[in-house]
Write a protein that binds this DNA or RNA. Structure first.
Lengths: 229, 229
DNA sequence: CCTAGCCAAACGATCGTTTGAGTGGGAGAT
DNA sequence: ATCTCCCACTCAAACGATCGTTTGGCTAGG
C-alpha cells in the first residue's frame, strides 16, 4: 500500500463521479483502507487533487517543450505537439479528464498555480501557430479560434478513448496529426520520418489500471451497435 | 419570480462550481428565496438538472434535424450541422457546459433518457459523414475518429466563448464551418448562400443573462495579455 | 520501547428535503 | 361594498444523512 494506489483510486473515482461528488470514505473503500488511514498518505482531499493535476500538467508541459525543440519547421512542431498531447491523453484518459474538468474545484491560490502550467503549455501552441502563419506554411484565418478548436479537439480524446478499444495510442496519434494539419491548413502533412522519434508514451503513476466506465456512447449499447474507438 | 429564474440561477451556479458542489441554499440565495421556497418551483435538485439538460438537448436535436432537412448535399448538411451546433453553444454557453459536463450527476434512469437524446443528435452527424464519404464529397480516413474530433471541437465552443468577447455568434459560426469543412476534407467549402437561411439563434430560457465567470484563460489576465474570444 | 500503519468513534459543518405555520391578494357569495 | 374563503407564495426550523477531518488508542515488526 502506498500513496500511488490512493491516487489511482482517487483518479478513478474523480473521473467517474467528479471531485465534489466523491467522498473520502469512498476512496478509502476502493483501496480497502479506513478513511482515517488515508490521512497518513495524503494531507487532504484537496491536496490529493492538486497533486494529480500537477502530475498531469507537468508531464504535458514537458512533452510540449520537447515537441518544439526538434528542428525548426512549425509544421513539424505542430504535428509533434498534437502527437504528444494526444499520446498523453490517450494513455492517461482518467487523469486527463480529471485535470481539465476539476479546475473549478480548486481554491484560488492553487487554481492560480495550476492555471499557470496550462497557460505555459498553451503558449507553446500559440507560438507555433504564429510562427507558422508568418512563415506561410500554415493557414489559419483566425489563429486564436483555430488554436482553441485544435486544443479542444485534442483534449476531447480523453473523453472517448478506450485503451481496450479498436485503436492503439499510436493510431490515434497518427489520425490526429493528420486532423490537426488539416485544421491548420498545412498543405502537405509532414511524413512520419520527419517528425523525429516518437515520444515515449508516458503512463502516469496516478492513472488507474482500468479506467472507470464513463458516460459516453463508447461504452453503452447504442441503437446502431456502433463501434467508437 | 418564476421557475425560469430558478433555472437560470441554477445553470449559472452549476456551470461555475458544478452540480455536486452547488447547494440548494446557494441557489436560493441567488434568487433571494428561502431554500424551502425553491421546492414550490422545482421537485428536486436532480429534477432541476434534468430539466436543464433536456431543454438544451431537445433544442440541439431539433436544430440538428432542421440542419439536415435542407437540400441533399452532405457538404451542406455538414456545414449546417456545425453552424447550428456552434450557434447553440455560443448563445447558451453556461447551459451547454452544464449539459455535457454533468451527465455523471444523473442517476441511471434519467441518464439513459438524456443519453438517448444525445445519441440521436450524434447519429445525424454520423449519417452525414457516411453519406458524404460514400458520395466522395468529403474525405475522412477514419470516419469515427474524425466525427468525434469534430464533435469535441464544437462542444468546446461552450468552454471558451464569451458573448461580450471579440466575436459575434455569427462570426464563430462562420469560422467553425470552415474548420469543420477542413477537418472533413471538403475541397471547396460551400458558399454562404448555399447553406440556406441562417438558423434562428435560440436563447434558452434557462441560460443566465450574464454567464458565470469560468476558469479559463479567456477571463483572467495572462502573461501575454492575450485576447481570446 | 519505538514507530509506522491502521482503525473505531466522534467532531462540527453542511447536505437535500420536509414540516408546519404564516402571509397576502383575488374570486365568489352575500 | 363587504365579507369569506382559498390558494399561491413564503419562511424558520428541524429532519436524518453525509461531509472532511481529528482524536486516541491498538497492533505488530525492528
Amino acid at each position: 500500500m502506498g500513496a500511488d494506489e490512493v491516487q489511482r483510486a482517487a483518479v478513478r473515482l474523480f473521473a467517474r463521479r467528479g471531485y465534489a461528488a466523491t467522498g473520502i470514505r469512498e476512496i478509502g473503500r476502493e483501496v480497502g483502507l479506513n478513511p482515517a488511514t488515508l490521512y497518513h498518505y495524503v494531507g487532504s482531499k484537496q491536496e490529493l487533487l492538486v497533486t494529480i493535476m500537477r502530475t498531469c500538467l507537468d508531464q504535458l508541459l514537458l512533452a510540449g517543450i520537447e515537441a518544439v525543440e526538434f528542428g525548426d519547421d512549425p509544421r513539424v512542431h505542430l504535428a509533434r505537439l498534437v502527437r504528444a498531447h494526444v499520446g498523453l491523453s490517450a494513455t492517461n484518459p482518467a487523469t486527463a479528464r480529471v485535470t481539465d474538468q476539476e479546475l473549478r474545484a480548486l481554491d484560488t491560490g492553487e487554481q492560480e498555480q495550476v492555471l499557470e502550467l496550462r497557460d505555459r503549455y498553451e503558449a507553446l501552441l500559440a507560438d507555433v501557430v504564429r510562427k507558422g502563419a508568418r512563415a506561410g506554411v500554415l493557414h489559419a484565418r483566425d489563429p486564436v479560434v483555430t488554436r482553441l478548436a485544435l486544443l479542444e479537439m485534442c483534449n476531447g480524446v480523453a473523453h472517448w478513448y478506450r485503451p481496450d478499444g479498436r485503436l492503439t495510442v499510436r493510431q490515434v496519434q497518427q489520425r490526429f496529426v493528420e486532423l490537426g494539419c488539416r485544421l491548420l491548413g498545412v498543405g502537405d502533412l509532414p511524413r512520419a520520418a520527419d517528425l523525429g522519434p516518437p515520444p515515449r508514451v508516458v503512463r502516469l503513476a496516478c492513472e488507474p489500471d482500468h479506467p472507470p466506465a464513463v458516460t459516453t456512447r463508447a461504452v453503452r449499447p447504442t441503437p446502431k451497435a456502433q463501434e467508437v474507438t
